[in-house]
């Protein structure tokens, strides 16, 4: 019995060989640019141009050149500051709304909800100019507010929290009310802890989006001191001659935070991407 099972197993594995080959090729193509980016950050631009794909010894030199020409720590700090602020505020505002729409829903709120969903149709580029003028009139250019205000309330996050709120046990709500907790305390003390996993997934996806955003920061962060990491590396690549070792060092610094988030919280990231679809 065990023997036939084993032969069966190896027969199945044999049939899967094309799958393994195909998946290996795709995996290689997916990973290689990362590997190359890291090696390039350790080589001089001449070595990179010559096609060297092994690690070199110029990492420190590239890093020094990068920090000499660009405000690396400032931009890195900005990116962290903006992204973390946006994540915290967006999660709070959108989870409040998702909770309100799901657990207090009635005819009118449902109607408001379906109108809000229309915002999904509004492309970023269409609101860019009016929003820029609004931010500039309110003297918010080059502040964290200009960065995050248009991205705090998103139909995607509201929907994600609303969908996941369906699993929130209503009994708890009733019990808490009988215990005399008011509606807001119920949200903070009951809802937030129960919905931890939704918050985690939403946090990962929001942080990634905020960190990676480029067009909007490029519009409102007109001062170099307010620029983000994607803006910094785009500037490095804009020179007449590109120092590839230096550029890839910048790209590495821009990618490491999101890659750490990816490796540590991959499950939450996948959940965040598919968030509002259930």
């Amino acid at each position: 019995m065990t023997k036939t099972k084993r032969t069966n197993g190896s027969a199945i594995q044999k049939r899967l060989i094309p799958s393994y080959i195909f998946l290996s090729i795709v995996s290689f193509i997916s990973v290689f640019p990362f590997y190359w980016m890291i090696t390039a950050a350790t080589n001089t631009t001449v070595e990179v141009a010559r096609g060297k794909i092994t690690f070199g010894s110029h990492a420190l030199e590239n890093f020094r050149n990068l920090t000499a020409g660009q405000d690396l720590w400032g931009s890195l700090g900005n990116s962290f500051k903006y992204s973390i602020a946006q994540t915290i505020v967006a999660l709070f505002i959108c989870s409040l709304a998702g909770y309100g729409f799901e657990l207090y829903h009635d005819k009118y709120k449902d109607r408001v909800f379906s109108i809000l969903l229309l915002a999904m149709m509004v492309p970023q580029v269409a609101t860019m100019i009016p929003l820029f003028r609004m931010m500039s009139k309110m003297k918010l250019l080059n502040t964290v507010w200009a960065f995050m205000l248009p991205a705090i309330s998103t139909p995607f996050l509201i929907m994600m929290f609303r969908q996941n709120s369906r699993n929130f046990p209503v009994d708890i709500l009733e019990a808490a009310r009988i215990d005399g907790l008011n509606e807001f305390k119920i949200f903070f003390k009951m809802y937030m802890p129960v919905m931890k996993s939704t918050y985690a997934a939403a946090a990962v996806i929001t942080f990634m989006n905020a960190w990676n955003s480029y067009m909007w920061p490029k519009v409102v962060m007109t001062d170099n001191r307010a620029q983000t990491m994607p803006m910094l590396i785009a500037n490095v690549a804009n020179g007449y001659t590109i120092d590839y070792g230096l550029l890839m060092t910048g790209v590495l610094f821009c990618s490491v935070p999101t890659m750490i988030v990816f490796f540590v919280l991959q499950k939450q990231f996948a959940e965040g991407i598919t968030g509002s679809v259930k």
Binding site: Y99, L103, D106, K109, L116, V122, T127, P130, S153, E183
Partner: peptide, 21 residues
């Protein structure tokens, strides 16, 4: 309370999305 919960997000979307369009 329900309305209070969804007001901030709704207002923001109106100001940052519908009004600009």
């Amino acid at each position: 309370a329900g309305w209070a919960f969804l007001t901030p997000a709704t207002l923001l979307l109106v100001i940052m999305s519908f009004y600009p369009i």
